[in-house]
Amino acid sequence: MKGKAHVYDRDDIDTDLIIPARYLNTDDEKELAEHAMEDLDKGFVKKVSNGDFIVARKNFGCGSSREHAIWALRGVGVKAVVADSFARIFFRNAINNGFYAIECKGVSGKVKDGEEIEIDVKEGVVRAGKKVFKFTPFPKFALDIINAGGLLNYVKNHP
């Protein structure tokens, strides 16, 4: 996967910043996407392109269990979030949706906003120019769920 990195060089980007609760009166992915990251960066929706990544520091996605956070990011074209660490429910939701939440330390701060980066999920590597960041690849059960196209498909095939 290759794409542009949108870098938010900070900790604790909560689910209310990713998709404010005032928009949770719908679960329509397109509608949610219009408000992705709105309270953190009003210009995000305009500048993001399909296949881009978000890069941040630790505890990304803390707060609410709303899967709407994943849908808003996916809906606006984000393919993966790279962060030092993730809040537990956000990470679970990501796996269950086949969305990549890449736990890779030290990328934020070393990659410039707008820089092109490459993520190799199998190898467990993020590359930004000559800089290389390693991460522990997903455990097998998580990859199985992602590769099945999400948890429900996985469950259907593993009764």
Binding site: D27, G63, S64, S65, R66, E67, I70, I89, R92, N93, N96, N97, G150, L151, L152, V155
Partner: peptide, 25 residues
């Protein structure tokens, strides 16, 4: 499907919040 599901641990239950896909499963 609610993060504050941890509340019910006060009664000695294992109780945790999940997203909608986990909930569906």
């Amino acid at each position: 499907g609610d993060s504050h599901t941890c509340t019910h641990g006060a009664l000695g239950a294992f109780s945790t919040g999940v997203g909608s896909t986990d909930l569906a499963a």
